[in-house]
Amino acid sequence: MEEFETYLASIPNAEHSKQLRIVLEWVLHTFSNLKPRFAWGQPMFTDHGTFILGFSTAQKHFAIAPEGEGIRQFSEKVIAAGYEHSVKFIRIKWEQPVNYALLEEIIRFNMADKADCTTFWRK
């Protein structure tokens, strides 16, 4: 979590910072093989040098970025969970519970789908 401490400290709302910390720690503990990295102004996780998932914050939500393919694969489940999404981000309002089962499914998909990927981003 050292990579993310400055970012977490920069979140103006202490409760939001605490909530995102819980999510990031969950990713670290659930997927201990993923490497935490801070790049492009956001906490992210990589696997064998390829991007798996990133996070960002806004006043009313935090966002999960699994790349476009991760959004396409899980769009219906994301909407069923009560979240909004764009082509790049899933937005979870600060007052919404995190659907960890869905988050785990998205991460596992990206890891499997990018198992042979030799670039940071999908081509």
Score class of each variant (00 low, 15 high):
1 M>G: 11
3 E>L: 12
4 F>T: 07
4 F>Y: 15
5 E>G: 00
5 E>I: 08
11 I>H: 11
11 I>R: 00
12 P>N: 12
12 P>K: 02
12 P>Q: 08
14 A>N: 03
14 A>K: 12
16 H>E: 10
16 H>I: 01
16 H>R: 06
16 H>N: 12
18 K>L: 12
18 K>W: 01
19 Q>L: 13
21 R>D: 09
22 I>F: 08
22 I>K: 15
22 I>E: 15
23 V>G: 05
23 V>Q: 08
23 V>L: 04
24 L>H: 09
24 L>I: 02
25 E>H: 12
25 E>P: 05
26 W>I: 00
29 H>I: 04
32 S>N: 11
32 S>R: 07
33 N>L: 05
34 L>P: 06
36 P>Q: 07
36 P>C: 05
38 F>A: 07
41 G>I: 08
42 Q>H: 05
43 P>I: 03
43 P>D: 01
46 T>D: 07
47 D>K: 12
47 D>T: 02
49 G>K: 11
50 T>I: 03
50 T>G: 11
52 I>D: 10
53 L>M: 05
53 L>N: 05
56 S>V: 03
57 T>P: 11
58 A>T: 06
59 Q>W: 01
60 K>A: 01
62 F>R: 01
63 A>W: 02
64 I>A: 02
66 P>T: 05
67 E>V: 04
68 G>L: 09
69 E>Y: 06
69 E>I: 03
71 I>G: 06
73 Q>A: 15
76 E>F: 07
76 E>K: 14
78 V>E: 04
78 V>Q: 01
79 I>N: 04
79 I>G: 04
79 I>Y: 06
80 A>I: 09
81 A>S: 15
83 Y>R: 08
85 H>G: 00
86 S>T: 15
87 V>L: 06
89 F>W: 11
90 I>S: 00
92 I>V: 15
93 K>D: 14
97 P>Y: 07
100 Y>E: 11
101 A>S: 13
105 E>A: 15
106 I>P: 01
109 F>I: 04
113 D>H: 12
113 D>E: 13
116 D>F: 05
116 D>I: 03
119 T>N: 13
119 T>W: 03
120 F>K: 12
121 W>T: 07
122 R>Q: 15
123 K>M: 02
123 K>I: 06
